[in-house]
């Protein structure tokens, strides 16, 4: 996107740079245990223990019962008869995010929902993993050009596995989850990216045209998500 000529575009490419740096540096403490921090190096026992823990986490996961759009129908099929995701010990849907390990994001994320999804994600206990299901969670999919559509789940939360397709077949979802399990078992993890869209307090936003306009409507300490559409990929 040639962002220079357009209005509403951040002058510098700051947003993208931050994201890219974070991706490349791979700043990542999702697996870090307190024990390891205490010991510093990696004694044999801890290594073995880490391996065991990785295997454990890769071999059993509770999913969040979470449906957004069309892809969630295929997701239901994946849980159900015939495809039966539970064979891989990954088929127990929990309704409460507090008890889930994996969130499958099955569908298009729009502006009104993104803050809520972020909140649900935040409510899950670490270590947690995200499976982006469908083109919508990659780029916005068929709705990429929509005025209201977030261009991919990664704009809001970090995603470990992307499964392409519209919708991906249940087999593809199973493959994706198996792949995720494999990666977890090997101790690989995706970097936590710095996302362009964060939940922040309204009072913390830099004041500009739109912020000033909304000042009467929104309290200082309300959580908001600001979308810079022009900066979106």
């Amino acid at each position: 996107m040639s962002s220079e000529q357009k209005p509403f575009v951040t002058d510098d490419t700051q947003v993208q740079t931050e994201t890219r740096d974070a991706r490349m540096a791979g700043a990542d403490d999702r697996f870090n245990s307190k024990l390891r921090e205490a010991f510093g190096s990696s004694p044999f026992i801890l290594t073995k223990f880490d391996k065991f823990m990785n295997w454990v986490r890769g071999s059993s996961m509770f999913m969040l019962q979470f449906g957004i759009a069309c892809c969630s129908i295929e997701m239901m099929h994946t849980y159900a008869i015939k495809h039966d995701l539970d064979r891989f010990a990954a088929g127990v849907p929990r309704a409460s995010p507090r008890q889930a390990d994996v969130i499958i994001v099955p569908g298009t994320i729009v502006s009104k929902f993104a803050p809520r999804m972020k909140r649900v994600y935040d409510q899950m206990p670490e270590p947690k993993f995200v499976v982006g299901m469908g083109s919508c969670t990659i780029s916005g999919g068929p709705f990429q050009e929509g005025y209201n559509v977030i261009k991919g789940a990664e704009e809001v939360i970090p995603v470990d596995i992307h499964i392409p397709g519209c919708p991906p077949r249940p087999e593809a979802l199973i493959y994706g989850i198996a792949k995720l399990q494999e990666r977890i078992a090997n101790g690989e993890s995706s970097p936590v990216t710095v996302k362009p869209y964060e939940l922040e307090q309204f009072g913390d936003l830099e004041s500009d045209e739109i912020v000033d306009k909304l000042a009467a409507q929104i309290d200082e300490d309300d959580l908001v998500m600001r979308y810079n559409w022009a900066d979106s990929p």
């Binding site: 309204f202 998500m225 559409w229």
Partner: peptide
């Protein structure tokens, strides 16, 4: 908190928007 009416003729899709989580 949306600004503008997207199916109107002069809507600019690039303008930033803010959504709240009350």
């Amino acid at each position: 908190t949306w600004q503008g009416h997207p199916l109107g003729l002069d809507y600019d899709q690039d303008r930033p928007q803010i959504a709240t989580l009350r």
